[in-house]
């Protein structure tokens, strides 16, 4: 407060660092690559497209672009569809789908956490719990899916599946209102 020192204080222009949360970012990148790797077991064409999807996801997570992460996930979905149409067996398709959706969920959260809380905030516990929930949902649904596949191995899987889908479509239509 004395007049002897320079009258203007130094200024610090830094805002908080809004880069995506680190741990989740790495997890998302790893999972998007894993989706492509798993798809190799199903179809090479699909795996190639998924690799492009993984690349888009990686770049987008790094730069914190929410839309890019979604684009990467859509690309991977496209890869899974292509692999499915080309006759890939269910196991790698289920695996790749699980990885892709996890990559999107965790990657998108990483960006979101970065934006609301910042890269330097303590968010380890939040990220871990979120990822655990997502992992639980993915593994449960994938297991159910695979169980249905195994159970229906020699019966009329298509008939049963189509009924299941019809029911799901109806329920979604009701819920969306």
């Amino acid at each position: 407060m004395s007049g002897e020192t320079t009258s203007r204080g130094q200024t610090r222009q830094e805002t908080i660092n809004r880069k995506p949360a680190a741990a989740s970012s790495y997890a998302a990148i790893f999972l998007s690559l894993l989706a492509a790797a798993v798809l190799v077991l199903g179809s090479l064409v699909g795996a190639t497209i998924a690799a492009v999807g993984a690349l888009i996801t990686t770049v987008s997570v790094y730069r914190g672009r929410q839309k890019g992460v979604t684009l990467g996930a859509l690309m991977t979905t496209g890869a899974i569809v292509a692999a499915g149409v080309l006759g890939a067996p269910p196991a790698p398709l289920l695996g790749a789908t699980g990885c892709a959706i996890l990559a999107w969920d965790i990657g998108s959260s990483a960006i979101d956490i970065g934006q609301t809380l910042g890269h330097n905030a303590d968010t380890a516990r939040l990220e871990a719990v979120r990822a655990a929930f997502s992992l639980f949902v993915t593994s449960t649904t994938a297991t159910v899916g695979y169980a249905i596949y195994v159970l229906a191995g020699d019966g009329q899987p298509m008939t049963a599946l189509v009924l299941l889908i019809l029911g799901a479509v109806i329920i979604i239509a009701v819920y969306r209102q």
Binding site: L151, Q156, T159, V162, G167, I170, I171, A173, V174
Partner: peptide, 28 residues
């Protein structure tokens, strides 16, 4: 009612999946 119909459809689907006889009845 629509929701109930949806749930019923899923139920029949599951039954068809697990019980081969039902699925044979319902060949689509």
């Amino acid at each position: 009612w629509v929701a109930v119909f949806g749930v019923l459809t899923i139920g029949v689907g599951f039954t068809a999946l697990l019980v081969a006889d039902v699925s044979e009845l319902l060949t689509l």
